[in-house]
Design a protein around this nucleic acid. Sequence first.
DNA 1: AATTTGCGAAACCGATTGGTTGCACTTATA
DNA 2: TATAAGTGCAACCAATCGGTTTCGCAAATT
Lengths: 108, 108
Amino acid sequence: MKRDVFQAIADPTRRAILLLIATQALTPNTLAEEFDISRQAVSKHIKILNECELLEQQKVGREIFYQLKIDKMKEIDQWLEQFRQLWEDRFNQLDELLITIKNKQHGK
Amino acid sequence: MKRDVFQAIADPTRRAILLLIATQALTPNTLAEEFDISRQAVSKHIKILNECELLEQQKVGREIFYQLKIDKMKEIDQWLEQFRQLWEDRFNQLDELLITIKNKQHGK
DNA sequence: AATTTGCGAAACCGATTGGTTGCACTTATA
DNA sequence: TATAAGTGCAACCAATCGGTTTCGCAAATT
């Protein structure tokens, strides 16, 4: 099945998983303890994240440690880039407005 | 129905709509011309985007112009912020490595 | 006044989602 | 060697998704 990273982060459980494995590698069992769903349900989420190339895995004995592979997350950032100019522009406009109204310096 | 911005951007058609209305206000009919789906299908997407507070609307006669309200998009950016440090760290590590290996400047 | 246009809402539909349970396979442990 | 532990996969299920068609209503046009 063809999925993309936007679909991957659409589910709140998957977003939570991504946060948990961002800085440490965890096994499905360990992850499942963090949620109110079965170990198999977590495995299905892992499978989806894996298909989106968001995971690195390392097998140690019968355990499999999953960790976030950060690269694909940049795709979200790149997509946002198209809009970032908009809110920065708006911020700059506000900034100029403030400068115009009060013509003295302030902390920010 | 309770939806969030991550669900809003999960669908490719909705992402395309968001881009189209980022810099100009458009009507559902105009938007529908851009896609191979019915005007009503576009309206359903608009409804979802509206529930996520991603839209501003202005009624002109019998037409309704929709435009992107940028604020909620920042939520995605804020969520990404949690991970941004990770790939910046990795970039910095790579940067230092390059500096260590070759101690002269190069074009990139 | 009658008709056309633009829109949202509702009913319907097949496909997908996110969960479950059960099972099979591999690896450790008794 | 038998048993337990860790995992992935498949079958199943109710709910949701993304599309359609039909309809009703308000605003413009004839």
